[in-house]
Structure formats: structure tokens, C-alpha cells
Write a protein that binds this DNA or RNA. Sequence first.
DNA 1: ACGTTTATTGACCGGCCGGCCAGTTAGCAG
DNA 2: CTGCTAACTGGCCGGCCGGTCAATAAACGT
Lengths: 201, 201
Amino acid sequence: MTRQATTRDPEQTRLRIMEAATDLFVEQGFSSVTMSQLASAAGVTKSLIHHHFGSKEKLWEAVKEHAFAQYFSAQMAMLEEAGEPDAELLRASVEAYFHYLKANPKAVRLFAWTHLEGDTSCGDMDAQLMGAGAEWVRQAQQRGLLRADVNPTHVVAIFVMTCTQWFEAKCHHQHWPGMGNDEAFLEDFLKIFMAGAAPRD
Amino acid sequence: MTRQATTRDPEQTRLRIMEAATDLFVEQGFSSVTMSQLASAAGVTKSLIHHHFGSKEKLWEAVKEHAFAQYFSAQMAMLEEAGEPDAELLRASVEAYFHYLKANPKAVRLFAWTHLEGDTSCGDMDAQLMGAGAEWVRQAQQRGLLRADVNPTHVVAIFVMTCTQWFEAKCHHQHWPGMGNDEAFLEDFLKIFMAGAAPRD
DNA sequence: ACGTTTATTGACCGGCCGGCCAGTTAGCAG
DNA sequence: CTGCTAACTGGCCGGCCGGTCAATAAACGT
């Protein structure tokens, strides 16, 4: 158990607020969540949230920044532990990205809300990841491991966007007739994607 | 010019409200739009909106239903005017879908909002379209025009999801380094997708 | 032991929210 | 012209919104 608040612990309190806020914002988006909701979900008063975060907007920013930072470091770690480019590593990267999103549905929804808001605060972070991914594809192309007649950035974008949309819009397409489960879809996507990205004979 | 309202025209008024509401909801989502905003954007009073639509929620439902109906009929028309299955027709379908989304950014955003809301009211409509698309792919597979070792529904889902995400998250990835414009991306996607969906040699 | 700081509370605020309602006016059937 | 229906308006309401503030109490330096 986490310690009961017989004694004060501002950092713990900040964390409790952030966690409750993350859950609520992820579920409902920014504007339909109220401070009262946030306060009761975190087990604190509204005033305390203002004391720690200043305003509802600033809390939202803090939640997003925290989630983006986690996403960024997780992705960077995955990129760095990837070894030398080869074709199987592309498959492994797609699988790793897919399973990361599956394990982090809150991050997926948070991204979706920020897409709609037009928030570009995570732009630099995203650009850095995408740059690294595209560079990796470019090297694989030069070694003849992937077809060289496509923009490397587009190659990464295609699998990132497919994985993202799979989880973002799951509530929609999980009811489509004949649609398989996560693993079945991933398998079929990989068949098509890997064959399509292979060098032309 | 549309006629000035020297004379009353309830249908025209309903339409004006729907159009203004569509623009606002598409831009900001449901909860951050206020009735006052809607009223002034439509050039009517709040009460009149209530008179015609009952409540803010019902107006939102009406906007969604209208947009989905348009989407549905447009897609059905595209499916029906497609001829016999062949490999080039798959390319044409992807291009048609991509350009439809490009020409209807409001529909794209409306879909995104409903994804996040978990709204499944367009489920039957979607299922019908997807069923038709998958059936089309199945026939192409039986004729040896497409690889037969993948779920037909997944084939359709892959290109639908990629196109959707391209436009839904455009504010994000348009700043990624090396990312091309709409047509360049579509071309690269088609290279990979068509090659990957082709029969195995 | 004693200030100082700061985490925390509850009461409170002006304003706007969605919605309602009584009243007015345009269209329309007879 | 006369009712009647329905489109349309302005004013208003109770309630909740995000936010403030003075008061309290726990932690902490000295």
C-alpha cells in the first residue's frame, strides 16, 4: 500500500492529481472534464489543484508533457537497442511499435486528442524520432535490404500511422465484419508491408 | 446571394443552423462549443436552436447523422461504379478513397471526434461498406489477382486506416523531416501496398 | 521553542452554461 | 377577415463553471 496521508507529501499529492487527471483527460478530453471531477477523482480539493498546477490548462499541459516524455524515452530506447539494419529488424520494429501502443492505450488516446486540438507541442520530439527512424530505413535501402524507390520517411510513417489508427479507432472497426484480433491484423499487415517494402526483383 | 429572411423559411433556418454547427463541432468538438456560439454563428437565437433541435446533444447527433449519411452514400456510389475486380482497380479504389478524404476534411475530423467519444452509431453503415469492400477483395483473391493468404477485411482496413490517419493527424506529421506532400505520400504508399498485396510468386 | 514556509481546506465569487417560457409575428386554411 | 399553428424572440433561471482568498495546520530551519 502507498502510505496514508497522515503526514503531508506534496510530491505524492502532485502525482495523485496527475494520475487522476491523466485518466479523466484521456477518457473525456480536455473541455468536458471539470475541476470538481478532477478534485474528487484525486481525492483533494479544487483549490489544491490550483495551488499545485495553477489552472486547468496548465494541468492539461503537464499531463501531456509527462505522457510525451514517457513516449519519447520509450521510443528512443527501442531505436537505440535496435542493431544494424536488416530486413527482419524492420519487422521487429513494427511489432515492437504495435505492442507498445497496445500496452499504452492512454498514450494513444492522448495523441488523438492532441491531433484534434492541433497541438504541435510534441513536434520536436516527434521529428527527432521520425528522423532517426527514417535514417535507419535509408541505411537499409543503401544496403539493398529495402526497396530504394520510396521516401524513407514515408516507410516509417506508413507503419506508424497504421498501428496508431488501429488502436485509435478500435471502437469503430472492431465491429467490422471479418475483422480479426490484434495479432491477426498485425500478422496480415506485416505480410503486406514487408513484401511491399522488400527490394524489387 | 441567398434570400434575406424578409419571409420565414424553417427549412432554410434548420440548414443554416446545421451548417454553422457542423463547422463549429468539426473544429472544436462537442463539449467546448456553447449554445451562444452556435446561435451567433448561425445568426439565430439560442431558443430557435432549441425549437428546431431540442437540445445541444440532439443537434450534435443530427450533425453526425447528416455527415455519416453523406459519407455513406458517397462511398457506396464509389463501390458500385467500380467494375469487375482486377489489380488496377484496387489502386484506383485507394486513390479514390484518399482523394475523397482530402476533399472532405470535415468528415475526417468528425470521424475522429466520434472515435474518441466511442460513438458507434455509424456502426451498421460502416459494417456494410466494409463488408462490400472485403467481398470485392475476396473475389480478386479467388481470381488470383491478389495474394490469398491475408484476411480480405484486413486488406481494406489497412488502406482505409492509413488514408484516414494521414489526414486526421496531418497537423502532427506534416512537420516530420522528409515528409512529402499528399500526392508523394500516396504514391509511395501505393508502391508498397500494391506490391505487398500482389500474388506471391 | 519559535517563526517561516507551504500544503491544504472550505467558503465564496462573478460569469456563463444549457435550457425554459411567455409573448410576438408570420404563414396559412377556412 | 379570422383563428390557428408554428417560427421566432428576449429575458430569465438555477446551477455549475474555473478560479480566488483568508484561515488552518503540518513541516522545517534555526
